[in-house]
Design a protein around this nucleic acid. Structure first.
Length: 460
DNA sequence: CGTGCCGGGGG
DNA sequence: CCCCCGGCACG
């Protein structure tokens, strides 16, 4: 509903659109091929082309082979020193026999001429790069934005993940020290106040809408069958299958990187050929969103998770999901406390139309609902399910009719099928004719009451 | 136990 | 239809 706030939220997307945005590139790069080398000259070939080191916040090692622009041409050089403070690199150019000082961003490890378009490099596979890593990037972005989304706080999980990626980024070893932090998108997601405003606007509860829209938006933007899954509150994560590891990360990219860097050996030849080797070492797991996670958002339905999972059985998952939920008796649980969350609706059949409640899908209902306010508590009755239809002919109408002329109740209709378990309607809380008029004035009762049928004058 | 009301039955 | 009631479930 708030386009503006959306924009804010979607800041990462903004970045997407503008491909030159560094933050995004970094996401991309980091995601697709973790570490550029362990010093040996052979800079990544399989993946990405020109590597502007600055983007990775990498550290250049003395003796490392690099390329710099010198006199309009790309020259091969050897790192002599990398000054982190100034981000300058002193490079020895053997060919010219001279030393040069270059900004980190002007040094790259792959023999290519980045900016000047007029020099084709033979070692870069540009198209492939875009295709391949774009996917990952998309995934990364989506996942990232998901995980950063205010709606899905899921603190524990998220922490794990964040920690995970972080550890890979930083803890991974000499990859980089403390450096990467600046660009890693998670940071801005959680920390920055920017994306959050919408939340406060919406006010804690019932944020249901915005985030969903958000998803859809993303889908639109990305034109990608994004993670609908979340709708079912099933989280997808990836678990590392490496012996004794079992790390769980939220993104494919993350898990791949984890595997690659920690298990497959930090650096090495695999850059090119084992691109998908990591695939063998992780598994996708679906995790039911645990109740506590949803809680902070406001009222949470007591009995959420027993809706059947539409997706794969995936036993691998973080098992328990939900404890023992009684498969059957739904209704008693949710009485009045629950109704504020429209997310879940209960399929219940009612026998009589007048038993059909008003309920649950907020907007459409209102009409007859308003007529109904005689009974304070009864917004949603356990037994009375949620029907998306408004009760035919408003109840109020009937009530009025009968009030003026207490005869001729007209049963609106009766649905033929009655499911056994909902046969008996719940005891109405409203006063009935009997109570109101007393037995002695039985003649004033509504006909139904007289006939020991469901009272039609004082409906619940 | 009082009450609401379903299911049935008689006229 | 109209009217009544047995009987069950619920509180």
């Amino acid at each position: 509903m708030l386009p503006k706030s959306r924009l804010g939220k979607r800041s990462p997307l903004g970045a997407l659109v503008c491909t030159s945005c560094p933050s995004m590139e970094s996401t991309l790069e980091t995601g697709s091929h973790g570490d550029p080398e362990g010093g040996v000259g052979g800079p990544t070939m399989g993946s990405p082309g020109p590597q502007h080191l600055s983007r990775f916040n990498n550290k250049l090692l003395p003796g490392q082979k690099v390329y710099v622009l010198c006199g309009g041409r790309e020259c091969t050089g050897v790192v002599e020193q990398h000054n982190h403070v100034d981000n300058e690199v002193s490079v020895l150019l053997p060919v010219l026999g001279q030393h040069v000082l270059r900004k980190l961003e002007d040094v790259w490890t792959c023999p290519t001429v980045p900016p000047p378009p007029h020099q084709m490099s033979s070692c870069i596979d540009v198209p492939r790069r875009s295709a391949e890593s774009m996917d990952e990037m998309m995934a990364a972005l989506v996942l990232t934005s998901l995980s950063c989304s205010p709606l899905v706080p899921s603190p524990p999980q998220r922490d794990t993940v964040t920690a995970g990626s972080a550890s890979m980024e930083c803890g991974g070893g000499e990859l980089s020290d403390s450096s990467s932090s600046g660009y890693w998108s998670c940071d801005h997601g959680y920390g920055s106040p920017a994306p959050s405003p919408p939340i406060t606007e919406t006010e804690g509860h019932s944020l249901a809408m915005p985030p969903d829209e958000g998803l859809d938006m993303e889908q639109v933007l990305f034109d990608e069958p994004a993670p609908r899954k979340r709708r079912n509150s099933v989280k997808v994560a990836y678990r590392c299958l490496w012996p004794n590891c079992g790390k769980i990360l939220k993104s494919v990219v993350g898990i791949k990187r984890h595997i690659r860097t920690l298990h497959l050996g930090q650096v090495s030849e695999h850059e090119r050929c084992s691109c998908s080797e990591e695939d063998f070492y992780y598994t996708e797991i679906h995790q039911r969103e645990p109740r506590p996670l949803t809680r902070p958002l406001g009222v949470s339905t007591p009995s959420t998770p027993w809706s059947a999972s539409p997706s794969s059985p995936s036993p691998t998952g973080v098992g328990p999901g939900a404890g023992g939920d009684s498969p059957t008796e739904v209704s008693p649980q949710l009485s009045q406390s629950a109704p504020s969350t429209p997310d879940f609706f209960w399929q219940v059949h009612s026998e009589h139309s007048y038993q059909v409640p008003v309920q649950v899908e907020a907007p459409p209902v209102s009409v007859s609902y308003s007529c109904h306010c005689t009974t304070p508590t009864s917004t949603l009755h356990p037994r009375q399910g949620a029907s998306f239809r408004v009760r035919s002919v408003s109840v109020g109408e009937q009530w009025l009719q009968q009030h003026s002329a207490p005869i001729r109740p007209h049963p609106v209709s009766t649905s033929p099928q009655r499911s056994h378990w909902s046969t008996r309607r719940i005891r109405g809380e409203a006063k009935k004719c009997r109570k109101v008029y007393g037995i002695e004035h039985r003649d004033q009762w509504c006909t139904a009451c007289r006939w020991k049928k469901a009272c039609q004058r004082f409906l619940d």
